[in-house]
Nucleic acid binder design. Structure first.
Lengths: 111, 111
DNA sequence: ACAACCATGTCATAAAACCTGACACATATT
DNA sequence: AATATGTGTCAGGTTTTATGACATGGTTGT
């Protein structure tokens, strides 16, 4: 994962900030967590800490719900997204491997 | 101010997160605020809300103090930084103005 | 050496924010 | 009509934050 991705996954925001940022109620946010659409970590005292990625995800959820999708629909949409991401990552590392072979080949010619 | 700068100035972090991020105590953070080294805004109930820029600034403060500078020294350092920033901005907008004149000139030739 | 100052620790007390669990309810689905 | 969904709301308890005061070790100035 990139440095930037790491930063976006840092658990730094309390639920109040997330409420302000997303215009969702805390009831909604907790309900979405219960339904595993998000998975915020917890601080020492047990309070939720959200990342910037969580916020993005909540905004997505809001849009999908507004568009008429159900929670279950959204669960599947996210599952599909995850599969795609894995696929993409796999094909990229395959590409890296094949490029490495090519460069190794070139290196041999150079000698 | 750029979009990115705006985001970095969003007041989103409670003091607990800032404590974790900077390894400062809340006593220290409040003391620096008292001495106007930072100026976090306040949420509805009066609680401090820090921005990412505030965090950066606190890390700077920590470094300066470690290096032996006093709070007053740091106040002056920051004041100087602000003056420089204004200067830079001024010279940039002067540059923009002169470039605009040049382009206006070119436009005239084109006709 | 002594007083004054600086940066921080610590404690008490109060308020705000957050947690979970439960019940209510309007709307949509079966 | 019965059930399921998504959200509102309230109660009771815990955690976090706020402010103000006093304490203290280290440095500075006289």
């Amino acid at each position: 994962m990139s440095e930037r991705e790491l930063r976006r996954n840092l658990a730094i925001l309390p639920i109040g900030t997330v409420r302000d940022l997303t215009l969702l109620t805390d009831r909604q946010i907790r309900y979405y967590e219960q339904n595993e659409l998000i998975n915020p970590s917890r601080g020492k005292g047990g309070q939720r800490r959200f990342s910037l990625n969580d916020v993005d995800r909540l905004l997505e959820i809001r849009d999908f719900l507004d568009a008429g999708d159900s929670i279950k629909d959204i669960q599947e949409i996210f599952a599909k997204q995850r599969r795609k991401a894995v696929e993409k990552q796999d094909s990229e590392s395959a590409l890296r491997r094949s490029l490495q072979k090519e460069f190794a080949q070139i290196g041999r010619f150079d000698r």
